[in-house]
Design a protein around this nucleic acid. Sequence first.
DNA 1: CTGAAAGCGCTTACAG
DNA 2: CTGAAAGCGCTTACAG
Lengths: 339, 339
Amino acid sequence: MTIKDIAKKAGVSMMTVSNVINQKHNRVSPKTIEKVNAIIRESNYTPNLNARSLSNKSSKIIGIIISIEDTDSDINYFNNPYISTMIGVIEQELRHHGYFTMIRTVVSPSDIMKLLGGWGVDGILFLLHTNSNVEAFLESSSCPAAIFDSQLTLPHLINVSSHDENGLYLSTSHLIACGHRHIAFLADYEGNPIYTKRFSGYCKALAEHNIPLRPEYLLKYPVSYEGGIEAVKELVTRNLPITGLVTVADICAIGVLEGARLSGLSVPSDLSVIGYDNLAICQFTYPKLTSISQDMTQKAVMATRLLLERIESGEMPQKSHITLDVTLVERESVRKIES
Amino acid sequence: MTIKDIAKKAGVSMMTVSNVINQKHNRVSPKTIEKVNAIIRESNYTPNLNARSLSNKSSKIIGIIISIEDTDSDINYFNNPYISTMIGVIEQELRHHGYFTMIRTVVSPSDIMKLLGGWGVDGILFLLHTNSNVEAFLESSSCPAAIFDSQLTLPHLINVSSHDENGLYLSTSHLIACGHRHIAFLADYEGNPIYTKRFSGYCKALAEHNIPLRPEYLLKYPVSYEGGIEAVKELVTRNLPITGLVTVADICAIGVLEGARLSGLSVPSDLSVIGYDNLAICQFTYPKLTSISQDMTQKAVMATRLLLERIESGEMPQKSHITLDVTLVERESVRKIES
DNA sequence: CTGAAAGCGCTTACAG
DNA sequence: CTGAAAGCGCTTACAG
C-alpha cells in the first residue's frame, strides 16, 4: 500500500495525497481531503518513512548514544538505573513529539557517524559520553546534539547538568545541622570532574560552619559497593572519631551500610550516612538510605525538549546550558546528635 | 558524499561501487575493489541506509516493543530491571550482527504497525506484551517476531520462556531440604498465568514430600513491596506457625523483609524467605536475599539469535519455543532448622 | 485547487 | 568484469 495506490483509489494525483498527509490543507479542497483521508483510514496505510527521510532532510529519528569502552564488553550499561530511567523518559518524550528512538552503544566517533550518516538522524543525545567522542563528533558534524553533566560548555552543544556542588553541600550541611562535626567524605574523586565538584560542596559546607577540613577524613576509595565496605574498615581500624559520612553514590553508601554491619557498627546510631542519586533501592536497604535526589525525569525531559527545539527552530535555544538543582531526601540513615 | 561521488572519483560506475560495498567480490576485479575501498576510506563515506532500505526489502532495524497501558502513563517501564537488562543485552547482540535497535513503547496494535510499515523493520521483539497486541500484530503482518514468557505457543512466533514452575519448585524444595514444613506461598497469583505456573511448582514440591497444601498458607497479596509487608502482618496477626515463605518476585520478598522488621521478626531466625528474579538488589538487602535466578543474558541472547536466524534464513528455526531453566542462588535469608 | 516531472541515494536485474 | 536503466516511495519546486 503506497501513496500511489491511495491516489489511484481516490482518483487524484500522488502529490495531492502527499499534501493531505502532510496537512498542507491550504493546497487541497476540503472535499478532497475528506475523500483521501477516508481511503487512507480504511486501507490502513502507513507512509514509508525511509522514502520520506530520503526526500526530506529529516528522518524523525533521534539517536541515544551510550559510549562504552569496548565493543565486546560484558558490562551491561543498561543495568545502571540512571541510564535506564533516562532512556524511559526520553523515549516517552520523543514519542509524544512524533520522533523515533534509536539506541546505540558506541566505542569510537566513527560509530556515531555511521548512525548519523546512515539514518540521517535528526539529533543526538549523549547519555554516556567520553570527551573525545563528543569532540570528534562536533568537529565533523553539525547535527544538533545534547549532553548531560558535561564540563565542556561548547556553544553548539546543549548541556543539562545537575548542581553537583550543591548536592554534597546539602548532604554535608544536613549532617552538620544534625549536630555532626566529624564528617567523612568517601570517594576517590581525583580525576573525576563530577565527583570533584561534589567534593567542593563538602568543603564549602564545612567552611561555612568553621569546621576544619581534615585530610584523614577523606576516604579515597572506589565509588562502589566494595569501596564502601573498605572505607568503613579503614575508619574502624584507624579509630577515627567520625560520626557522619557523605559520599557521591548510593551504591557506595550501601557498601558503607554493609561495612558497618561487618564491623559491628550500627547505622545511624554509631554512624550516619547519606548517599547520592536517590535510587529506588534507597527505600529497600536497612536502614532506608537518606540521599541526594536529582530529578532525572526533569533532566531527561529538559534535554529532549531543548534538542527538539533546536532541531525544529534551526537555531540554538536561548538557554542551552542548564543546571538543575538537587534536593535532600530524608530517610533513616541519619541520627540527630543531642548536644 | 554519495555513491555517485565515490564512483566519479574512482572513475567507475555507481553500480561497481555498490558491488564493492556489498562485498560482491566475484563481480569486481581486485584492483577496482582496492581502488574503490581506498576512496571510500579517505572520504569517510557512509551509505545512506534510508536509501538502502528503500531499495532492499531489509532495513536492518529491529524494533523492541514495550506494551504500555496508556500513552501518557507516568510509569517508567525502563525502571524495571528486567526490561533494562534485557534491552542492554539485546542491543549488544543486534549490534554485533550489524542491526540497529529501535525502542518503542506502544499502546495499540496500530502503533506497532506504524513502526513496522514506517521503517520496514526487519523483526520485532516483544519485550513486554499484551496478548491482544501480539495477536492483532500476527494477524496483519508476517514480520518475524519473538516474544518472552508467553503462554501462547503460536507456530510463527519465537517464544523464549523461563521454567517458571521449576522456579518455585526449587525454592520450596530448598526450604523443605532445610527442614521447613510450614511454608507460605505469597502472591495474588490467580489470573496471572506466569504466577500460576510458579504456584504449581510450590504445590509440586509440597506434594513430593507429602506436605499438605494448606489454604491458609496461601498469602494472596499483591506482588509488590507493600504486598510483602501486608502479608507478614497477616501471618503475625493470625499467628500462623510458618517458618518459611516463598514468593514470585524479589520486590515482594523485600517487602517481607521490611514487614518482618516492623513485626519484630528476624529473618532468617524466625522466618526464612526466598525471592524470585535474583535482582542485583538481592545483594544489598539485609539479610541478603536468597532468590531464583533466570539467566536474563541467555534469555535475551537466545531470542535475538533465533529472531535473526529466522530473518536471515527466511524460515522458522527448528526449535522456536524454548524454555530455559532457572537456578537457586543461596544467600542469607534462609535458615536451616535442626531436627 | 491540482498534477506531471525530477530527484533523494541506493540496488537489482539485464545487457554487453 | 563493467555499466546504463529502471525502480524503491516519497516530496519539492514548478506550471497550469
